[in-house]
Simulated assay, not measured.
Amino acid sequence: MTGKKGLLAMIEYSSLESATNKFSESNILGEGGFGCVYKGCFDGGILAAVKKLDGGGQDCEREFENELDLLGRIRHPNIISLLGYCIHGETRLLVYDLMQNGSLETQLHGPSHGSALTWHIRMKIALDTARGLEYLHEHCSPPVIHRDLKSSNILLDSEFNAKISDFGLAVTGGNHSKGSVKLSGTLGYVAPEYLLDGKLTEKSDVYAFGVVLLELLVGRKPVEKMAPSQCQSIVTWAMPQLTDRSKLPNMVDPVIRNTMDLKHLYQVAAVAVLCVQPEPSYRPLITDVLHSLVPLVPTELGGTLRVAEPSPHASHKSSSH
Rank of each mutant, 00 (worst) to 15 (best):
H176Q: 08
S180Q: 13
E31Y: 01
R75P: 09
A238I: 00
D54Y: 15
P143W: 05
Y85V: 05
G174T: 14
V268Y: 04
D288M: 14
L83V: 14
V223H: 02
D244E: 12
L293F: 11
K39V: 00
W237F: 06
K182T: 14
A116E: 13
R73D: 04
E224D: 14
E279W: 08
R220D: 01
G198H: 08
A162N: 09
A269H: 05
P240K: 05
D157R: 02
F160K: 03
I234G: 08
Q267P: 00
G110W: 09
A270Y: 03
Y266N: 04
N21E: 10
K225S: 11
G198T: 04
V276A: 02
L70Q: 00
S319I: 14
A19Q: 00
K150M: 03
H146K: 12
P240N: 09
L68W: 02
S177E: 13
I145M: 10
K51W: 01
V218M: 06
L127C: 01
H120S: 07
P310A: 07
I74P: 00
L196S: 15
V95H: 06
C86E: 07
F167L: 05
A48I: 01
S229L: 13
K39D: 07
Y13R: 09
K182L: 12
S229V: 14
S292N: 10
E159T: 01
G219M: 04
A19T: 06
R75H: 15
S177K: 15
L305H: 12
L183Q: 12
G33W: 08
K263Q: 15
G174W: 13
V171T: 11
N101A: 06
V181I: 15
S319N: 14
G188F: 02
L242A: 10
T106Y: 14
I11R: 12
Y207V: 06
G32F: 09
K263M: 12
S103A: 12
L117E: 06
W237T: 11
T299G: 11
G40S: 13
E309L: 15
P111D: 13
G102N: 03
I80R: 07
L98T: 07
S233F: 08
H88N: 02
E309K: 10
I79C: 00
V171I: 10
Y189E: 09
P298T: 03
L301P: 00
V255K: 04
G174M: 12
K221L: 10
P142A: 04
D54G: 07
H316D: 13
R283T: 03
I154Q: 01
A191R: 07
H137R: 01
E300G: 10
G33I: 02
L136Q: 00
T299C: 14
V190G: 06
P249T: 02
P278E: 10
D69W: 09
G32K: 06
G33L: 10
L169I: 09
E134F: 04
L296S: 05
G185R: 00
V50C: 01
A126P: 06
L248K: 00
M260Y: 04
G185S: 03
N258E: 12
L213S: 07
C140Y: 01
Y194W: 12
D128C: 10
R220A: 10
P143E: 04
T236C: 10
